[in-house]
Amino acid sequence: MGSTAMRFQALAISLVLPLVAQTLAACSDNRTPFGPDGGPPPTSDCLPDLDDQLTRAEMPTFLGTVVSYLVAQNTTVDTSGSDLDLSAQVAGERKYALEASALGEQWFAAEFPASSIVVPLDFEGQAVGILQSSDEAIRLVGIASTQEDYTLLHYQTPIDLYRFPLTVGQSFVTESAVVGQFEAVPYNGSDRYAVEVTSIDSVALPHLRFTHSFRVHTEVTSDSGAAGLVIKRQQLSLVSECFGEIARVVSQDDESEANFSDAAELWRFSL
């Protein structure tokens, strides 16, 4: 308020003295630089058409765009039915801002094709997945730690996570040897990904309802190569046109039921 009072006083002076006083006050160099303002946020022409199939164009990838997720661990989730209510607050959940990025200058960049995309695999930012994207599929080609020379795994056969167009009834299985090092220890195992698009559901999230989301069930079987150490996990992903994965429920280890309720992780898209 002080500056306002002072300028009322300046106004009075300038009205008594000719307005030249203020006129001259502005006759100096411009103090406002050009403001490029960074341009508008990245947008897409993608508009959902709810035609019961999800094409590659309806899963756009924005590198460098932050997407927020609410993440809860070790919680109970009701994934039954076609009208999923994931809107309730979950005890202990936290909000994480994640973003996809180009391979760029990552420490493992030389190990993968330059066109690869890097996406966070965990909310703590310790592990990333390296993906290859085409009009036909999004494939997982490797896993790495953000800590240099700690974990770096190659899939000798790229794992198909999504095949386009997604339609209800679609299913496929990809198996691959996984080689490299895991937590600084040499690793030689195999993974099996069985993917099935089971239905189109309505999903209520904390701020939004998605009325047409593809329910994608993925069963991951990991054989570490060590005697008898095989882990099976169930994963439910809910994927919407133009948004991609809006929710993910990951089971506890060694879960065999597709409609599980005991979740190790619950990820929900958040505004």
Partner: peptide
């Protein structure tokens, strides 16, 4: 632009 610099969004009040 009133010589007051840019807004938090990086814009001038008026083109410069």
């Amino acid at each position: 632009d009133l010589d007051r610099g840019l807004t938090p969004s990086g814009k001038a009040l008026f083109p410069v």
